[in-house]
Each structure stands twice: as C-alpha cells, then as structure tokens.
Design a protein around this nucleic acid. Structure first.
Lengths: 150, 150
DNA sequence: TAAGATTACTTTGTGCACGATCTATATGTC
DNA sequence: GACATATAGATCGTGCACAAAGTAATCTTA
C-alpha cells in the first residue's frame, strides 16, 4: 500500500480526499463545539439557528424561515413545536391567510438573545482565525452550496 | 432596516453570515445532490461514505472506521447492520479479540464499487469547478474541522 | 490469579432531516 | 358560485447523530 488516497484497481479516492466529506465532518464538528454552549440555553444547534433567524426578524412564517435555513416544514414543524413547548416562541395562524403559521418570540425567547453574543465569541475563539480568513472560507463554501442547489 | 446581517440592538449576525451555517447547509446540499445518484445503489449518503472507506481498506473494525469518519459506534452499529442485511458487508467478531467486530465486503459489496467512479464524476460535473479550486476549498474546510476538534 | 479498570461494541432515548402523503385554506377559471 | 389547482403546514416512516448506560472481553496490578 504505497498511496492511501487511491485504490490500485480503479483509482477511487478515499473519503478523506472528498470535499463532500470535509463539509460533512466540519459541519458535525461545529455541532459538537456548540453542544456544551447551547446545553446551557437548553437549545439544540438547529433550534439555535431558528432562534438566530427569529432574533433578526420576528413574526415571519414557517415558509420564510424554511427558505432561509433550507429546511422544509416536515423538519421545522416538530422543531418549532418544541420551541413553543419550551416557551420561547408562539405559533399562530395568520388571520389574513389561515394557511400560514406566524412565528413570534416570547419574552423568554427575546431574553435568550442576550447570551448569543457570548456564544458566538466562544466559537470565534475556538476557531482562532482572523475575520478575513473566516469570511473568505465562508464565501467559498457558500459558492459550493449555491452551485449544488442550482 | 438598513443592514440585513446585523440587528440594531446587539449587532447579532444573521445565520447567512455565520460560517457554521454555511457548512451546515453546504453539507445538506451535498446530501441532496447525492440522493438521486445513491438511490440507484440503494445506499444513503452515510452508508456510501462507509462503503467508500471499506472499498479502500477491507477488513477493518468498527473503531477504525469510526476514527476515519468521526462517528461513534452508536451511529455505526445500526448503519452497519443495515449494510449487512442488504448483503453488502459481513460483521464478524475478531477471533484474536472478541471485542472487535471486523467488517468485510461481500462480493455484492465489491461489485458496487464499479459504479462509484461514475457517481463521483456526476458530483464533479455538478460542482463545475476545477480540481485546484476544489482542493483549495477542501484544505480550508479541513483546517476548520481540525481546529474545532482540538 | 482474583478484583478492578479499560476497551469495543450494543442498546436506548431524543432530536433532526427528508420523501411521501394528507388536510385545510386560498386562488383562478369558467 | 362551482370546481380545479395551488399553496402552507402537518403527519408518517426511515435513517442518521449522539449522549448515556449496559454488556462482554481483555488487560492490569496488587
């Protein structure tokens, strides 16, 4: 075995040589980093992404939230119900269009926002990279994602 | 609302401005791209990553596989049982150390490898980026992941 | 060599993710 | 207004992902 990233028969790359696996495992690594930080807020990582989105724009509906997060209602509905049960948001039908469910932060949900900045600081520290480097990598990853979603 | 990526109260970035979300959503986008390709092989994306790993090195145990994929046995055990049920691998205890479960490809599992190169070609086409660009982005993402796992 | 610690894997419970399907509301066309 | 179509969410089933706890084999060490 002279080369670990290719197989002698058909030159098949190893997972460690595949971009898709890098993204897959880096995403998981982020979730692991966030876990102990979010445990204090009793939030999972996807729940945190929802909260961040609502902190930036309260009162949007499930569809709009899903467009931002690239998630559909079959993922969001149960997650949002858990946030509602936890007392962080309310889910109410839009009187103007009863098909829509409007999402609003409760006071408890708004209060939680004050701890988010601290969490983001912890994550930046763990990364230990300057803002320009992070921003450049992010732009590349966004480009990949947008290419794949075409 | 003059700036969509920051909130007026506490300058909280939007999810679309967070590197963690870029990785999270790019990972999902890859899974979505792979789905129709892997459906033909009756494999899920994580199952495919396991098969790629075994195609490169047959006969490793669950621990070693998990170290490569950054997954622990509570994720792998059920997944591997499904691959065994599908007739693609065998799971046998190591006679030298009965704690270990050795993973071996069956003939059907080996045959599947011949279709992997084609799948990888489809993915490259969808990305539509030259190898150096992809490789540079991959190196950045790996760097992030390894930083987070420190 | 017997007791305690470690290791490899399994089991259990919770929460995503997502395809497929269903329900209720709204809209468009005649 | 009646009927077809579209849209927004909800529900269901399958398969990860992972913490916590359990089991069995192996190693350590007194």
């Amino acid at each position: 075995m002279s080369d670990t990233s290719f197989n002698s028969d058909t030159a098949l790359p190893d997972v460690t040589g595949m971009l898709c696996f890098s993204l897959y495992s880096a995403g998981h690594a982020f979730t692991q980093l966030y876990r102990p930080l979010l445990d204090k807020l009793d939030l999972t990582y996807p729940q945190y992404l929802v909260m961040v989105t609502l902190w930036n724009r309260d009162g949007q509906n499930v569809k709009e939230l899903g467009r931002t997060l690239f998630l559909d209602s079959s993922t969001l509905t149960p997650l949002l119900k858990r946030l509602e049960t936890a007392g962080l948001i309310t889910r109410t039908r839009n009187p103007k269009d009863e098909r829509e469910v409007l999402l609003h932060l409760t006071e408890a949900g708004r209060v939680l926002k004050s701890q988010a900045a601290n969490i983001m600081r912890c994550v930046e520290d763990a990364l230990g990279l300057d803002a320009e480097t992070i921003s450049a990598i992010k732009a590349s990853v966004d480009r990949i994602r947008d290419k794949l979603r075409e």
